[in-house]
Design a protein around this nucleic acid. Sequence first.
DNA 1: TTGTAGGCGTTATCAC
DNA 2: GTGATAACGCCTACAA
Lengths: 343, 343
Amino acid sequence: MAKRKNNIKDVAARAEVHPSTVSRVMNPATRAMVSKSVTERILQIASDMGYERSPLASGLRTGRSYTIGVIIPDLTNPMFPPIVRGIERTLSAAGYIAILADSDNSQKGERAIFDSMKSRHIDGLILATAHLEDPVVRDCVAEQMPVVLVNRTTDSHDVTEIINNDELGIQLAVSHLLELGHRKIAFLGGPLDTSTGRDRYQAFQTMAEDGQFEMEAGLCAICDAFTEAAGYTGMSGILEQNRPFTAVVAANDLLALGCFDALNEHGLSCPADVSVTGFNDMPFVDRLSPSLTSLHIPLDELGVRAATLLLDEIRDSGSRKTTIRLDPELVIRGSSTPPGNTA
Amino acid sequence: MAKRKNNIKDVAARAEVHPSTVSRVMNPATRAMVSKSVTERILQIASDMGYERSPLASGLRTGRSYTIGVIIPDLTNPMFPPIVRGIERTLSAAGYIAILADSDNSQKGERAIFDSMKSRHIDGLILATAHLEDPVVRDCVAEQMPVVLVNRTTDSHDVTEIINNDELGIQLAVSHLLELGHRKIAFLGGPLDTSTGRDRYQAFQTMAEDGQFEMEAGLCAICDAFTEAAGYTGMSGILEQNRPFTAVVAANDLLALGCFDALNEHGLSCPADVSVTGFNDMPFVDRLSPSLTSLHIPLDELGVRAATLLLDEIRDSGSRKTTIRLDPELVIRGSSTPPGNTA
DNA sequence: TTGTAGGCGTTATCAC
DNA sequence: GTGATAACGCCTACAA
């Protein structure tokens, strides 16, 4: 009946050695200290008894938990599941486990989750939630907690991160629309307290300032979240201005979806009346009606590399912080065509 | 410099009481044992010092980790993120944390994850991966590990679970197609070693046997996974038979998407040539081209209730195992219309 | 190469 | 109501 799990002492007793010897054998890093014959005997017995080291106890002793925190702003945004999957696969291959939390796009949520994770003694953190000014990131740096940012960065680049070339992405999108003949282009931006929100917006502005097209204040809306609902609200605001335009650059795919809704509601159709581009090329946008022109990002790879960077960081926390910036690729689909009837 | 976190002894020293007393105060369940004045003083000091209990150490002592394992077959299937989110929200509100893993639709993966989670001393498990014959579920029952199944069940119903009324779902879909006038209906099923695969298939068969329409062997394909790729392969197989049909009932939405691809490739269009229904009403199917008729399931609620059931189970593991079965609702969209041109 | 001893932070159990 | 003690399972100087 007593279902107590075998512990290190049980194995030691059966192998007629001291628990510390078993401990050394069970830890690959210290295994070399023990003679070959004893090592083999202990490994055999341990496996026979179904012994498994308790990460809890060993973590308590060593201060490491082999647990990594992963905070995502919105798991229902289809861009994140592939990232999470890449992270999780990579971590578990290295003997780590991921504890996942969704901050629900809120900085307060992010903080609460961070505190809770910290109390679980996580060995490191992967954040997809970074804000330009982010107390959680600052705390990580201050406390020397290994951390990697994915997709978004902060204003103080003293952290390892893997992000996208947001400026290039917007350049590609706008150039594409310009080549199609569009000249009145609206912009649907994301929150300016995130790097993806600000940098994509700035890139759009810069292209206008370079004289490539004319930017009108009324044709620019900053949404307060990267969600369909916010995109809908933002686009509705633009439409109420009643200014002519033939294309919309949205700062991400969900905003573009909300944009579709607002256009439909105003009797406009995409792409006949208005062309739309998104950002991220999240799963299923190729199947939408219309299929969405977007900027492709290797999401799974983003996750894999974020996890790899974090593992490096944990092993050698003194190493220089690196910033990896991936170039997005424009994927042209049905939502962008030459301008026809002007709205 | 020494950034060591405050522990229970530090608090005790500052409050001039014994660590045990602090321990009693910090645990809501035992707080009543301590006098009001001491309780207040300790709480104040603890909060001043930023003291947080170490779940690791307390877990080591008590055998509970306040950690719940969550295994999902495929996180990139959009039906799961809302479920995961509901689970995570509910668990964290109760002081638990979720460790998430993706089994990648493989029973071997499920087993490996389970073992790894067990070694982390999880207090319970939520499985969305159940197979009809599932060793992991059997082990949970044998080891008295609290477990809740979501979405899928097993053949031995000795486990708490929250699932869908799959039979009703298929009845609704088929009835809908019959009412539209379809009589040659194909079926694209999921793996028969899962309850959702088998039960949806059986429901389809039963309706045919009841004489509501004629079921043809050649118009029935069982896919080996609930994925777009498998749906594409399955549907291609049906199309190669060259038998006339005007509608397809797919056992889930991803299969329906794969079905779209195969139809397109064969020059058939939905719904003009063939009507299609899905299952799960996962996010974004309302935006597809064509929008997909499907069976709606309250995904977030599924997650919330699964987590709630598990917490109940943890508190009172002796309680009777319950099966909750939710009725799906048919949502009619663009992919299903009366039959026009026969294929 | 292996054993010894002490401690990681907490709590159950017994005393007082 | 509070204090003392040991133990959860493991790791690591240090000693042998």
